[in-house]
Amino acid sequence: MFEDKERKKILQVHHVKKYFPMDRGKQLKAVDDVTFHVYKGETFGLVGESGCGKSTIGRTIMGLYNKTAGEVIFKGRDVHALTEREKHAFYREMQMIFQDPYASLNPRLTVREIISEPMEVHRLFPNKRKQNARVDELLEEVGLNRDHANRYPHEFSGGQRQRIGIARALALDPEFIIADEPISALDVSVQAQVVNLLKTLQTEKGLTFLFIAHDLSMVKHISDRIGVMYLGHLVELTESDTLYDDPLHPYTKALLSAIPIPDPDIEEKRERIILKGELPSPIDPPSGCVFRTRCPVAMDICARKTPTWQEAKPDHFVACHLYNENGPKVNIQGHNKVEV
């Protein structure tokens, strides 16, 4: 395959596995053989339902979890092979925004202390005066003001706290930010504020985002490309509009059709694919394709063989036996786009 010269891959995730040990020698396969890459300057969205492994992937990329197998390559270097000193430098380039703005800020520190902490750890400034000036600047960048610096987290609303979390992530001027469900704890009108802020910051600073969330409408809104996860596996990956216009994997189709659209006329006409049953346990996942127990078009082969991760169309990856070269062509009804 040709390397796209225009788009530089800043992050490559190669066959990464993360298993957690359980009782009686069993393993919870939170992430099982996931491969994707993120281009510099883009927003890559990772979606899936609870327990699909999307947060584990984020944490494994950050090096917060040790991988079980595979490689995480950030700017040409294996993140999990870094020495302590190299790791220190690595964290200047990659930062994280967490889900719960109530739990991710230390309640005993003032906003200034929270935002200064990473700068102190990395000794960015020769003196306090310069550091404080930078804190003020960051607060303004995220839509707060410098008077907020001496207050404590409990004095802020959820949306404002998330802005503080963003300011902290920006403190080291990173290139890459992993945002793990950054808006799901916020009210709808506030979600849009934070998403717009992230977009503005991206354009201004040329940031690359890995945006992890369960809300596909919001992920589609913010992302350039999207990976869909199910039970530890990446099942489909493509550009966000293509994912909606031409989904390939049966799970993606079901997921898209399950999301209600705030428009009564469209809702009335939409056909839903209602998935039967519930998510199997990641401790004892189904053989072959993990989705086959709920798949409306499962075939014999799905139980026997794990589908390979393949580029079914240009820049459109899928793991499903339906799209094997000699696989059967089955049409799945539902998720019809409704023309109004």
Binding site: Y244, I259, K337
Partner: peptide, 12 residues
């Protein structure tokens, strides 16, 4: 405002 602040899956 509420209606304008939620993204819609069907719009690009």
């Amino acid at each position: 405002g509420l209606l304008n602040s939620v993204p819609r899956l069907d719009l690009a």
